[in-house]
Design a protein around this nucleic acid. Sequence first.
DNA 1: TCTTCTTGCGTACACTATACGCATCACTCT
DNA 2: AGAGTGATGCGTATAGTGTACGCAAGAAGA
Lengths: 251, 251
Amino acid sequence: MTETSGSGDVHRSLALLWDPTGGPARGQPGRLSLEAVVDAAISVADADGLEAVSMRRIAGELGVGTMSLYRHVPGKEELLDLMLDRVLGDDDPTPFPVDWRATLERYGREVWALYRTHRWLPFVDQSRPLLGPRAVTGMEAVLGGLTDTPASDTHKILAFSMVETYVAGLARVTNGAELAEERSGVSTEEFWQAQGPVLVAAMQSGRFPRMAALDEEVFATTPEETFEFGLGVLLDGLAPRLGGTAVDSAG
Amino acid sequence: MTETSGSGDVHRSLALLWDPTGGPARGQPGRLSLEAVVDAAISVADADGLEAVSMRRIAGELGVGTMSLYRHVPGKEELLDLMLDRVLGDDDPTPFPVDWRATLERYGREVWALYRTHRWLPFVDQSRPLLGPRAVTGMEAVLGGLTDTPASDTHKILAFSMVETYVAGLARVTNGAELAEERSGVSTEEFWQAQGPVLVAAMQSGRFPRMAALDEEVFATTPEETFEFGLGVLLDGLAPRLGGTAVDSAG
DNA sequence: TCTTCTTGCGTACACTATACGCATCACTCT
DNA sequence: AGAGTGATGCGTATAGTGTACGCAAGAAGA
């Protein structure tokens, strides 16, 4: 699976993000809308993955010509940015408790759930995130939950984005494995078994004693278990930097 | 930037990874070799990024016909897998100290350095990692450094891959921003300034008081500072699970 | 020498994004 | 009502992608 880039024309994308009003009421009304295009793209991505999202496919899904899409979206990169902001959800989030640990924990779980629902999401490049209204709203809500820590704003942002980065990375691995399984028809188990013979030979060579001694079930950890482990590590590691108090738990 | 997938024909790739011998000495000797193809691909990726790595481009770089590459590599996905194992370096790594914290710290720094040297690397999908000889060698070395912890093998692997996942995620963001800057000619600063007007308007709306109150320099953290923060958090968070002792440091 | 096997590669096909230009139609102004 | 304006939908064309197929050339074994 190959990475997909966002961020084309910044001004144009921002305008579409913050001002989705239907434009001037001159000329033909138009049966196609920006919202319809973005929604169709998300449907395709949810159903068949990010690499199935092509302009032809979206247009076909909507029953219009391919180039008609370009009347509402500057290009594919901008479309991806719009998809990102769209899936963040419409409604105002329920406020976070004023408790940095509970806030970051809930935020981590929400992001994880979101990335698991839209499995293409962690594969969209976010190195230049366009700040849409929903993204800003969500960030504002998280900041509201972090007001109980004496840490600097810089540390708050660092903590916030570290949770995001880790969860996105884990979701990439998890979703990638699932999608590869569905697409190739080769299950993850079969995939590792296919590597078996070579690995067995390597193990028997005696060059990798510690790897050879590993129990097989070591790699059987479920995504949810991995996520819980990781989230716990993050919160415990952030504690000395945000809480000023001792570590709360261990697992 | 769009995500690139590895993992095509597993058996074929594994054979190429572990047995790069030149094949039977029948027929024409052949001036092209697997190693040359992989090296050329890495050169292109280092110079112009992952999306510049096309079969035509690699062939052109080697002065051969495009389809000649397919005599040595089953396809592009397999080529990416081979590139991955190749950049892990040839030589045996210097052994890790028997100290889980020092080991994971050094491992994290090495992975970070590697991902920063080959900036395309964190964009290659690793959800189905092919275990090449160099990858196995590296993992064996890390396991050797983790023998001082009473934690289970499962927890060792979890800790190990958590460092990998986080560093890869951070490198994706960092490298992605740099590459976008070089490719588009729009600097990161200009990019954020382009978002300025819209964001200022949003801030002045009063709907985002906490975001509006953020100091500007909050987003000026350098990649290295972010990495150091993250690595410290990880090690501190892993301590109660691996060390059985109290937290060592805070920053 | 003749057969066999391998390499190199030209051509073709099915995809991708998107630049350009034209016909169509609705609304606004005269 | 009629003319003018401007946006919409979209057909065509271009430049790129990965790769299946088949053929010519040449070296080693029989």
